[in-house]
Nucleic acid binder design. Structure first.
Length: 389
DNA sequence: TCTGGGGTCCTAGGACCC
DNA sequence: TCTGGGGTCCTAGGACCC
């Protein structure tokens, strides 16, 4: 039986959601003018998180520095983000999608797949998708694109066609007509580097890629990726809609400084801050980590990354921070200016640390008490949720 | 123009074991 | 003294996604 998959994607999500909130407050609708969501525009390092369609038409792109966008458009409206509000919008959006099919996979904060195989037919799929899209618009105030296809890849490619507020189909029978003329970069998983390799070999369109021999493709991108690209360029994808949220495999946090630092005290302060954040998150999710990794990005943008294994899994901030400090000492010459530091943990387990080392740090109880107080304060400060009513 | 933050997966080389 | 082959684990680095 052929599958029917919908991919639903919020148009310029963070920008749309900010607009909805502002419209409710009686402010003008920033979706209608060149506008962006970003960090502090006076900070030269701020980048664009989301751009309105009028802004995109001027060439302003997500992830571009704000300073650069301001040169493109001096009258650009710049607004800040509100994470709590975004979560409320996302929940409202997902909940409407789920009412169309419980077989739902949330792909990111603003995208999901639903399996509609038993909920509609190829003949009425567009009508059902249109109803879903209009329901989101009426009830929540923002627009989405719905892509319809016989698998997740095709549905996702289809939702990326003309925006906003549109429904598109990309059935297998339409692959040659609708997908093959597109540039390779439009294919999911083809980023900048892969595009460069393919075009250097004379492959510019998805159609050319689809018809390239697997041997040549393997030489260009490696065996595993070659197989996937070959299947996807031909419109094939048998991955299921995963209803279970996968458990996290790693946690990390990073900080970019407003100016490059060479003073070890500044670096250490940042390392301390990210260690607190990461350790708090693994405790919240009841994990312990067996690997700690640390990275620094220098002022010339080169990155140095180090990791090390722990004798025992831990969720103690002081232990994680201590490992990160050692790694920093190994990685950094103490001279090169540092732009960013980050800290991550991986090899996660839910096991409790029952085996106490004979040589356990006598300060361990103190460290754990410190963490308990940190977690308590963090919980007390959490914001009240927004609600749609 | 001057580049954020948080993730996943893959590859390659070295260490170590049988 | 020099030698094979396979498996696993670890680290570093690269590419992609939103």
């Amino acid at each position: 039986m052929p599958r029917i998959i919908f991919h639903i994607d919020v148009n310029s999500a963070f920008l749309s959601w900010t607009a909805v909130k502002r419209v409710r407050e009686g402010k003008p609708d920033i979706r209608l003018v060149p506008s962006v969501v970003s960090g502090d525009p006076s900070d030269r390092r701020s980048i664009i998180t989301a751009a309105s369609i009028p802004a995109k038409k001027l060439g302003i792109k997500t992830a571009q520095p704000v300073s650069m966008a301001l040169r493109t458009c001096t009258s650009l409206a710049i607004v800040g983000g509100d994470w709590t509000w975004y979560k409320a919008c996302s929940e409202g959006f997902i909940s409407i999608c789920r009412s169309y099919s419980p077989v739902l996979q949330q792909f990111s904060i603003d995208e999901c797949f639903i399996d509609m195989s038993f909920r509609c037919t190829p003949e009425n799929a567009v009508a059902v998708a249109t109803k879903l899209k209009d329901e989101v618009k009426t009830r929540l105030g923002f627009t989405v694109n719905v892509g319809i296809g016989s698998n997740k890849l095709l549905a996702k490619m289809a939702s990326d066609f003309e925006k906003p507020d549109k429904v598109h189909t990309l059935w297998e029978s339409e692959v040659q007509e609708k997908m093959w003329p597109l540039g390779v970069r439009d294919l999911l998983w083809v980023g900048k580097k892969t595009e460069e390799r393919l075009t250097a070999y004379g492959i510019y369109t998805i159609g050319q890629l689809a018809n390239l021999g697997i041997g040549s493709l393997t030489r260009l991108v490696g065996q595993k990726f070659a197989r996937q690209l070959h299947e996807n360029a031909n419109g094939r994808d048998d991955s299921p809609v995963e209803t279970e949220m996968a458990e996290a495999k790693s946690y990390s946090a990073e900080r970019t400084f407003s100016k490059d630092y060479t003073d070890p005290r500044d670096i250490d302060r940042a390392l301390f801050n990210v260690a607190c954040i990461v350790a708090h998150r693994i405790r919240r999710d009841n994990f312990r980590a067996s690997t700690v990794s640390m990275f620094v990005k220098y002022n010339n943008f080169t990155v140095s990354q180090k990791q090390c294994g722990l004798a025992q899994p831990t969720d103690v901030t002081a232990v994680i921070l201590n490992e990160a400090r050692k790694l920093l000492a190994e990685a950094w010459d103490g001279v090169t200016p540092i732009r960013q530091v980050g800290l991550g943990v991986s090899r996660l387990t839910h096991e409790s640390a029952v085996q106490m080392s004979l040589f356990e740090d006598p300060k361990m109880e103190y460290y754990k008490e410190w963490d308990r107080q940190y977690d308590e304060q963090k919980a007390a400060r959490s914001n009240p949720a927004y609600h749609f009513h």
